[in-house]
Design a protein around this nucleic acid. Structure first.
Length: 842
RNA sequence: GCCCUCGUGGUGAAAUUGGUAGACACAAAGGACUUAAAAUCCUUGCCCUUUUGGGAGUGCCAGUUCGAGUCUGGCCGAGGGCACCA
C-alpha cells in the first residue's frame, strides 16, 4: 500500500492553485461565485470550512465546464467583537482585527480554495470605507437617508447603548443594571420606500430557496387594510386607526394607541400615566420581548364614538403592544377575533362580541373561551355586513367608510426603516457634520475618507468618538465656520451590502466600483452562506442594489444575487463543567468509564445536546488541527459527505477519519491501475457504460447541490473499480475511467485529484468529463413487477420496452407466474421503465 | 408570542419528485489474515420460518390512490429568525 503523504501533496498543489486563478480563464460565459465573507473573529471555524468548501466545489465545477469564474474573498472587518476584545485584551481593535485577518487568511489558504486573493478587500480598510462614505452621501443627496428618533437599549450604569445580545434577561451583560428603552435621534436608510419593489422582486428570484423568499415576504409584510378616523367624545380631535380587519368593526369594544402616540402628550403630568410609561420602557426593544410581555394598558378615560353604531362609546387605552412605527400607532380592538385584543379585553373587563362565525347557528361566548377566532367565516351581529364572508365584508365596509369620508383603503408594510446609527468606535464614520445652527450637512467628497482616530479610549462609558478629545471638531469648508462631526458610525450591515460590487474592481480608487466590470460580473450567479442571513443581510443588499441603481442608472441589475444557497450549520455536542462554565471539546476527554471529564482537573463534565458551533457555547472544533491530522482534502470530503448541504451537520472525528481512509484507498487505487496492462475484453463496454451513467448522475447532482449524493456515487464508483480489478478487464479502460473519476474529484478534493491525474499522465485536466448521451440510452433499467401494489420481483431489461413485451416477460417469470395463473387480472398498470402492476382478485 | 424549516434503522442519510423504502457510509457484532495488536478484507443487521418464502415498517391519527416517505387534513416533537451578534 502506497502511503498518502498529504502534507507534501497539499503544499505542492496549493502553490499551483494560487497561480491558476480561475477568473483568468477565457471562458465565454461568466460565473460569479461568492460565499458570504467572514467576520475576522480570530480563527476560521467549521462553518467557514463548510461554506467555502461548498463554494469551491461550485467555482471549480463551473470553471471546468468552461465558465469564466470570479471567486473572491474578503473580510467583514468592522463590528462589536473587536471592541470587546480591545477592552479585555488591551489590544487596539485595528491591531486585533488585522492580526485575525492575517491568521484566517493563512488558515483559509490551507484549504486549497480556488480563491483569487488579489481581489481581497477588508471593510475596515479606509480604501474601502472611503467609498462607503461616498455612497452614503449619494444616498443622502438622493433622499434615501433620513433622521428620526428610535428606541435603543440603554445601560444606565455604563451610560452606553447595548446591542440586543448584550442584554441578558433584561439586564446589561457587564453592569447587571436593568436596561431601559431610551429614545435617540438616529440615521436611517429609507428602505421602506422600496417595500413594494423589494416584495415584487422576489417573484423573479427563481434560484432562491422558497423558504427564504417566504421569510422575506413575511418580513416585508404587506397588508391591505384601511384607516378609520374615530371622533373623540367631547374633543375636536380624531384618532386615525389602521386595521387589516375592517370587517370586524362591529365587534370593536375599545381603541388602543401607542405610548408614543401624539394623544399621550395630554397625560405627561398624570402620575398614573408616568408610572405606566415607565413600565412600558422596561420591556426590551426586540419584537420577541414585546410579544411576550404582559399586555398592559392605561385608561385615558376618553371615549371614541363608534362610526357605525350610534351612541356606542369605545374607551381609549394606551397599550404596550401597539407600536408607533406600524400603521398609525392606533388600533380598534375586536377581542373575539384577535388574540392580543382578547387577552387585553379580559384583563380590563371590556365587552367581547362575536362578529365572525364558522357556525352562525351556534353563537360563542368568548368570555369563556381563551382563544380568539381568527379564521374565515360568516359575519354576524354586524348590520349590513351580516351573512357576508370575511373577504366580501372587508370590501363592502371599506367602500362604506370611503363613502362616509371617515377613512380610506390603505396598504401598510411591516418593514421598518433601516436604523444605521451605532454609538460605537469600530465602524465606518458617518460623513456628516453638525453646524452651529443645528443643521446637518454632508462633508465634501474631497475630504473623504473621514478616518477613524487611532488614539481611542474604549474603557470610558458612552460613545467613544463623542468622548474623543478633539476628533469631532472640524470646520465646515463652505463657510469656514467651526462644526462638529457626526460621532455615530454605520451599522456593519452597510459594509456587507455592497462588498460584492467592490469585488468586481477592488482596486478602483476614484469610484466605489467600475461600472463596466460590475455590469460584466453582476449579478452574483451563486451566493452561498448561512440561513441565519435569510432576512437582514440579503434584504439590505437587495435594497442597496436598488438605491445604487437609482443613483447611477448605468447599473443594469436590480437584484444582487441571482442564485442563493443557504447551507446548514455545523453542530457539535456542548460541554459544561460543574460550575456551569462552557468547555471546548479540547478541554474535555473520555475517562475509562466512557464518561466525559475535564482534562485539567478530572472533574465531571455535563454533556449537552448538539448545537450549532458557537463561541459562546465553546462547542467549536478547530479546523486547522483537523487539517493537520487528516489533510485538507479529507476535511473537505467529510464536510460534504453524509448530510445534504442545506441541512445541519454533526461534526464527528470518526467521520473525518473515514474520509481520510477513503482518500488513502483512492490514492492506492491509482498506483494499482497505473501498473495494469491487460488487453481489453467484453467487460470493457460494460464498464464504460456504468462510468458514463455515474458521470451523468454526478453532473446533475452538483447542479442541484446534492453534494452528499455525489460523495455516495463516488464511493460506488470506487467499489465498481474494486469489483472489476478482479475481473479480466483492460488496464487502458481502467486508466481512462480512473482519470475521469479524478477529474470528478477535482472540485471536492483538489490536491489529491491533481496529484493522481499527474501520476496517470493526464494532460487535459481543465475540462469536466463529458456525458455520452448515446451510451445513456443503452443503459439497462430495473423494473419492479408488482401484484396488487406489492413488489414480487425485479427484472433487468432494456430501456423503452413496451407493455406487451413486459407482460410476456412477466408471464414467463418464475416468481410471478404462479401467482398470476388461475386469477382473473382486473387491471394492469404499466409505467414505462418503472413498474408493472397487476391488479388481481384477492 | 409571531414567521420559517425539519421528523426515514443504533447513527448520518438515499429514494429518478406519486412507482423496488433504507443506496452509500459511520458505529456494532461475528469471521479471515496476524504470535499479537493496528491496518485490510468478508459476513450479519425488524418479526415469523430450517430454507424457499411470508409479514410489519418512513413521528402519531385519518384521508385520496392500483400504488404514499412523497399529496390533503388534524395532532405531537425538534431546530432557526425576530430588525444593535455577524
Amino acid at each position: 500500500m502506497e502511503r498518502l503523504n498529504f502534507q507534501a501533496i497539499e503544499k505542492k498543489w496549493q502553490l499551483t492553485f494560487e497561480k491558476e486563478k480561475l477568473y483568468n480563464s477565457k471562458g465565454s460565459k461568466k460565473f460569479y461565485c461568492l460565499e458570504m465573507f467572514p467576520y475576522p473573529s480570530g480563527k476560521i471555524h467549521m462553518g467557514h470550512v463548510r461554506n467555502y468548501t461548498i463554494g469551491d466545489v461550485i467555482a471549480r465545477f463551473k470553471f471546468m465546464n468552461g465558465y469564466n469564474v470570479l471567486h473572491p474573498m474578503g473580510w467583514d472587518a468592522f463590528g462589536l467583537p473587536a471592541e470587546n476584545a480591545a477592552k479585555e485584551n488591551k489590544l487596539h481593535p485595528k491591531n486585533w482585527t488585522e492580526k485575525n485577518i492575517a491568521e484566517m487568511r493563512r488558515q483559509l489558504k490551507l484549504m486549497g480554495l480556488s480563491i483569487d486573493w488579489d481581489l481581497e478587500v477588508s471593510t475596515c480598510d479606509e480604501k474601502y470605507y472611503k467609498h462607503q462614505q461616498e455612497i452614503f452621501i449619494d444616498f443622502y443627496n438622493k433622499g434615501f437617508v433620513k433622521r428620526k428618533e428610535n428606541y435603543v437599549n440603554w445601560d444606565p450604569v455604563e451610560q452606553t447603548v447595548l446591542a440586543n445580545e448584550q442584554v441578558v434577561n433584561g439586564k446589561g451583560w457587564r453592569s447587571g443594571a436593568v436596561v431601559e428603552r431610551k429614545k435617540l435621534s438616529q440615521w436611517f436608510f429609507d428602505i421602506t420606500k422600496f417595500s413594494e419593489d423589494l416584495l415584487k422582486g422576489l417573484d423573479d428570484l427563481n434560484y432562491w430557496p422558497d423558504k427564504v423568499k417566504i421569510m422575506q415576504r413575511n418580513w416585508i409584510g404587506k397588508s391591505i387594510g384601511c384607516e378609520i378616523k374615530f371622533d373623540i367624545e367631547g374633543e375636536n380631535n380624531k384618532i386615525n386607526v389602521f386595521t387589516t380587519r375592517p370587517d370586524t368593526i362591529f365587534g370593536a369594544s375599545f381603541l388602543a394607541v401607542s405610548v408614543d402616540h401624539p394623544i399621550c402628550s395630554n397625560f405627561l403630568k398624570d402620575e398614573k400615566y408616568i408610572k405606566f410609561k415607565n413600565e412600558c420602557l422596561k420591556v426590551g426593544t426586540t419584537e420577541e420581548a414585546l410579544a411576550n410581555a404582559e399586555k398592559i394598558g392605561f385608561d385615558t378615560k376618553l371615549f371614541a364614538a363608534h362610526p357605525f353604531i350610534k351612541g356606542k362609546k369605545l374607551p381609549i387605552f394606551v397599550a404596550n403592544f401597539i407600536l408607533m412605527d406600524y400603521g398609525t400607532g392606533a388600533i380598534f380592538g375586536c377581542p373575539a377575533h384577535d388574540q392580543r385584543d382578547l387577552d387585553f379585553a379580559k384583563k380590563y373587563k371590556l365587552e367581547i362580541k362575536e362578529v365572525v362565525s364558522d357556525n352562525p347557528s351556534k353563537p360563542k361566548n368568548f368570555n369563556k373561551i381563551s382563544e380568539a377566532f381568527v379564521g374565515d367565516g360568516t359575519i354576524v351581529n354586524s348590520k349590513f355586513l351580516n351573512g357576508l364572508k370575511v373577504e366580501q365584508a372587508k370590501n363592502k365596509i371599506i367602500k362604506e367608510i370611503e363613502k362616509l369620508k371617515i377613512g380610506k383603503k390603505k396598504i401598510t408594510f411591516r418593514l421598518k426603516d433601516w436604523g444605521i446609527s451605532r454609538q460605537r468606535y469600530w465602524g465606518c464614520p458617518i460623513p456628516m457634520i453638525h453646524l452651529k445652527d443645528g443643521t446637518i450637512v454632508p462633508v465634501e467628497k474631497s475630504e473623504l475618507p473621514i478616518k477613524l482616530p487611532d488614539d481611542i479610549d474604549l474603557n470610558q462609558s458612552g460613545n467613544p468618538l463623542e468622548n474623543h478629545k478633539n476628533w469631532k471638531n472640524t470646520v465646515y469648508k463652505k463657510t469656514g465656520e467651526p462644526a462638529t462631526r457626526e460621532t455615530d458610525t454605520l451599522d456593519t450591515f452597510v459594509d456587507s451590502s455592497w462588498y460584492f460590487l467592490r469585488f468586481c474592481s477592488p482596486k478602483s480608487k476614484s469610484e466605489p466600483f467600475d461600472i463596466t466590470k460590475v455590469n460584466y460580473w453582476m449579478p452574483v450567479d451563486q451566493y452561498i452562506g448561512g440561513i441565519e442571513h435569510a432576512i437582514l443581510h440579503l434584504l439590505y443588499s437587495r435594497f442597496f442594489m436598488r438605491a445604487l441603481k437609482k443613483n447611477n442608472n448605468k447599473i443594469k441589475d436590480n437584484e444582487p444575487f441571482k442564485g442563493l444557497f443557504t447551507q446548514g450549520m455545523v453542530c457539535h455536542e456542548t460541554y459544561k463543567d460543574l460550575n456551569g462554565k462552557w468547555l471546548n471539546p479540547t478541554e474535555v476527554e473520555k475517562n475509562s468509564d466512557g464518561k466525559y471529564q475535564k482534562i485539567l482537573d478530572k472533574t465531571e463534565v455535563k454533556v449537552g445536546p448538539s448545537e450549532s458551533m458557537s463561541k459562546s457555547k465553546k462547542n467549536v472544533v478547530d479546523p486547522e488541527s483537523m487539517i493537520k491530522s487528516y489533510g485538507a482534502d479529507a476535511v473537505r470530503w467529510f464536510i460534504l459527505s453524509d448530510s445534504p448541504p442545506e441541512k445541519d451537520i454533526q461534526w464527528s472525528n470518526q467521520g473525518v477519519n473515514a474520509a481520510y481512509k477513503f482518500l488513502q484507498k483512492i490514492y492506492n487505487l491509482c498506483f494499482i491501475v497505473n501498473e495494469r496492462s491487460e488487453k481489453g475484453n467484453t467487460l470493457d463496454k460494460d464498464f464504460d457504460l456504468k462510468m458514463n451513467s455515474y458521470i451523468n448522475k454526478i453532473t446533475k447532482s452538483i447542479n442541484n447541490f446534492n453534494l452528499n449524493v455525489v460523495v455516495a456515487n463516488v464511493y460506488e464508483i470506487y467499489n465498481l473499480f474494486n469489483d472489476y480489478l478482479n475481473k479480466n478487464i483492460s488496464g487502458e479502460i481502467l486508466k481512462k475511467n480512473l482519470s475521469k473519476l479524478m477529474k470528478i474529484l477535482i472540485p471536492f478534493t483538489p490536491h489529491i485529484a491533481y496529484e493522481c491525474l499527474e501520476m496517470l499522465g493526464e494532460k487535459e485536466i481543465k475540462n469536466w468529463p463529458q456525458v455520452d448521451t448515446k451510451l445513456i440510452l443503452k443503459e439497462k433499467i430495473k423494473m419492479a413487477i408488482q401484484i396488487n401494489g406489492k413488489t414480487r420481483d425485479v427484472i433487468e431489461i432494456e430501456k423503452g420496452i413496451n407493455q406487451v413485451s413486459v407482460e410476456k416477460l412477466c408471464k414467463g417469470n418464475l416468481k410471478v407466474k404462479g401467482k398470476l395463473s388461475n386469477r382473473s387480472i382486473k387491471k394492469i398498470i404499466f409505467v414505462k421503465d418503472r413498474i408493472i402492476n397487476f391488479i388481481i382478485e384477492s
